[in-house]
Design a protein around this nucleic acid. Sequence first.
DNA 1: TCTGGGGTCCTAGGACCC
DNA 2: TCTGGGGTCCTAGGACCC
Length: 452
Amino acid sequence: MRSEASILHLDLDAFFAAVEQRDKPSLRGKPVVVGGVSGRGVVSTASYEARRFGVHSAMPTHEARRLCPNAAFLSGRFNPYRIASAQVMTILKGLSPLVEPLSLDEAFVDLRAGGVTDFSAEALTRLGENLRHEVRETTGGLTASVGIGSSKFMAKLASEEAKPDGLKIIEVGTEADHILFLNVRAIPGVGPATAERLQRLGIKTVAELREATPNELRRELGNLTAEWLTALAYAHDDRGVSASREVKSISTEDTFDKDLRTLEELEPVTIRDAIMVAKRLRKARFFARTITLKLKMADFTIHTRSRTLLGAVDSDETIAGVAVSLLHEQHHLLANGIRLLGVGVSGFTTQAQEALFEISAARGDESRIELPQATVRHSYQGYRPGDDVTHDLYGPGWVWGTGRGLVTVRFETAETGPGPVRTFALDDSELRSTPVQMAEKGDPSGPGWLEE
DNA sequence: TCTGGGGTCCTAGGACCC
DNA sequence: TCTGGGGTCCTAGGACCC
């Protein structure tokens, strides 16, 4: 906790949904839900109009459809999100060199490191409102909520309380009182499991947390967590703002429409995921020593198996080979039904260590495999709701929906105002996906599919 | 057609080494 | 002839975050 309110937290309001409403004028003022649109999808972001129906992040999409059947359900467009995010991060770097992005739509800024010296309420209000204004102007109307306080905890809490489209400053000296009656869930690091354990001790609020005896907390939560919670209960938080964190792992996973139970089905998925991960690994110019296979069972229990090699690798063949070999080791689980399979790599180095191959070959590992061509090819995604498309005659638009060999498109852009709807055959040669525009400053290994 | 995907950090036990 | 004790690496699971 600092002696002045010099940490700022910015959060873009309903970010993904707001970008969609910006680019799709007919959706402005209407409920919009961005997330997985298939049977097992969940909501990534709901617009404020959709939230009024009870829709929220992490909710199963089918439940969101039940609550708000008239919402637009979109699968999301990663590139526009990245571009808007990069614009906002650039603005923040104008305030201070010390900016810590938490995700595409959220960041901490160390104002002290930015040379700010006047931390009066008036000066900070001016700074915060100018920032919010600049974000709105630069991004074409996206709104941000800004919180300022003497610690990360306070800054983030302030932006939370400022939402949506607001600014809040928690004044120095008021921190401990400010949080007194909040639920313990407001404390960073207290999730469902910790909250449940605290509840068993009769603790629901920060005030009750302060009254707990240290021994009781330690017994229920362990030493470190108990200490951390006690500090935060009094708003003691000394975490610094740190500009860049090194990437420690890269992974990909998919949940299947239906549970899979055979090696014949799961092996190609494993190989495809491994190749995808290897590609991202090479793009980040890393080599990895540890390869991990993750299986989520039909009953949601998760099993992971990992293997650490003697050297670091980045090839499709090696990573896929190890992943497949780990899958074979888990053969006994398959009959129970596999809901999700994932492949990840970690233990990064910047140098390959080729000696590994000889050693693992001598051990008889299947550390390299021949990749069947069919699994390397990318499967065609088709049109997803919300995708950008272009028609030779009608120009730019977005996919409203598909079915029965048809695709319905609304022709409008951020600049046009609500536009007309037309339906085409899926294979109409005059209609195609709009090529993605690259973000100005994209970090390929940065945070991916996140909700606000 | 119940419950995503991408990450980080922590814990705890066993192997191994000195 | 007893029960050592650190430190590090690896594995698996779990909590948490957006």
